[in-house]
């Protein structure tokens, strides 16, 4: 067993059998994400109506030439609301998920490599953090520091960091026992090098898959946060909140509840498919 492992270590740089080329699915996913990002940036210029304007006395209006995606529960133009909502959903969720994963994964790898009391204390602290219900956490934050978008991002990140940490640590602990890591450590490499060059490449696949999932969770959690009074203030709303405020229209399949859901799905599926179609490339680069 040992022999085969050390053998494998020397052969690590050997090219993989799985694809180098950019897959069609990956490209399409990337385009969708880019399109939403553009929408997020230029939303105020392309939205046909002001986001808070009641433009129609009817509610849950159907799709029409004037209101391409119908109207919401107050008679506001859905298209404009979804376009403006992209800013919050894309911006806040991406920022929060990046922050959560960066902190969680870095700490997780560090805990695995350093081990000992550092690992124990950190692990138990983060376990305890997970046990504190996110509603209390959110309420305390609103009460203590008020609400703003940076605070919202940090809150979301704090809620999801322990999960990232546990997952990354579990992966890293496995890698950490591999002989090539032991060898590197014996060479006297520093913590930064071990984490970056030895551990990270080995866990990047699952970590990225996890990143995609957490992104979805954060998009959905965001909507609950605004209902707790944390973050996005009316008349603006993120996509999850749009679904929530129009859920009454579900009985008659109102476009107002269908389209924000579709918007969420296009974004989250694209992010995950892009990730599924990236890993080989990233991994290969990291090994050069």
């Amino acid at each position: 067993m040992t022999t085969s492992l050390s053998l494998s270590n020397t052969q690590k740089a050997r090219p993989r059998r799985f694809g180098y080329r950019i897959s069609v699915v990956g490209a399409v996913s990337f385009l969708i994400i880019a399109a939403w990002a553009l929408v997020a940036v230029f939303a105020p210029y392309i939205a046909p109506h002001p986001v808070g304007d009641i433009v129609d006395f009817d509610f849950f209006g159907p799709m029409s030439a004037q209101f391409p995606l119908g109207t919401d529960y107050l008679g506001r133009d859905m298209l404009s609301r979804i376009l403006l909502g992209a800013r919050y959903t894309v911006g806040i969720s991406l920022a929060a998920v990046c922050l959560a994963c960066f902190c969680g994964v870095t700490l997780g790898m560090a805990a695995a490599v350093i081990g000992g009391w550092f690992d124990r204390v950190l692990s138990r602290m983060l376990d305890a953090l997970t046990s504190i219900p996110s509603k209390i956490l959110a309420l305390v934050i609103v009460a203590a520091v008020g609400t703003s978008i940076p605070i919202l991002i940090v809150t979301l990140a704090v809620i999801y960091t322990p999960g990232c940490y546990r997952f990354a640590r579990a992966l890293a602990v496995n890698i950490n026992t591999m002989d090539y890591v032991t060898v590197a450590r014996a060479r006297g490499e520093g913590l930064g090098y071990l984490i970056r060059s030895e551990i990270l490449p080995g866990i990047i696949g699952p970590v990225l898959a996890d990143f995609g999932l957490r992104f979805v969770f954060i998009v959905l959690l965001l909507s609950s946060m605004s209902f707790l009074g944390l973050g996005v203030q009316p008349p603006f709303a993120d996509w999850g909140a749009l679904v929530k405020e129009n859920i009454g229209g579900l009985s008659f399949a109102a476009p107002a509840v269908v389209f924000p859901s579709i918007a969420i799905a296009t974004l989250t599926i694209s992010v995950n498919l892009l990730i599924d179609n990236l890993p080989q490339k990233i991994r290969d680069r990291s090994e050069q």
Partner: peptide, 16 residues
């Protein structure tokens, strides 16, 4: 919405 039309800046502070 009505305020914005007369140049009055109303911010909504949504709280829990």
């Amino acid at each position: 919405q009505a305020a914005s039309k007369i140049g009055l800046n109303v911010a909504i502070n949504r709280v829990p």
